[in-house]
């Protein structure tokens, strides 16, 4: 009968092998993704896109890089943040650097 230590080492080794497979998978997929990235990049170039399409509910979450200081307040200066995505996003870089756009 296999010793407990043997069974554990086997378990640990199989975990390491599976983890190594994920690294291999990441490496192989990276090569495969070049076409996908090129396709999307072509679209970004042709259509002059500026943002990723992740949060589509509000204009400042759909195009965060185009947001200005007032957009989160939408219709009222003291209006609370309406969309949860606003909690996930930081203010765009140009607002952090310029301050008063």
């Amino acid at each position: 009968m296999i010793r407990k230590s043997g069974a554990f080492i086997l378990f640990l080794a199989s975990c390491i092998v599976v983890f190594c497979f994920t690294l291999l998978h990441a490496y192989l997929l990276h090569d495969k993704s070049i076409d996908k990235i090129a396709l999307s990049k072509g679209l970004v170039r042709d259509l002059a896109l500026t943002d990723l399409c992740i949060f589509t509910e509000a204009r400042y979450t759909r195009h965060p890089s185009m947001a200005d200081l007032h957009t989160p307040f939408q219709d009222h200066p003291t209006a609370m943040e309406h969309f949860p995505s606003g909690s996930l996003l930081q203010p765009p870089a140009h607002l952090q650097s310029h301050g008063m756009d």
Partner: peptide, 24 residues
């Protein structure tokens, strides 16, 4: 007008999903 340069767009996304920020 306000000009937004590409580096700022890239930095927006660099910071947007920074794991130290946000509700997550």
């Amino acid at each position: 007008t306000r000009p937004i340069i590409r580096d700022e767009i890239l930095r927006t996304y660099e910071g947007a999903f920074d794991w130290r920020s946000g509700i997550m």
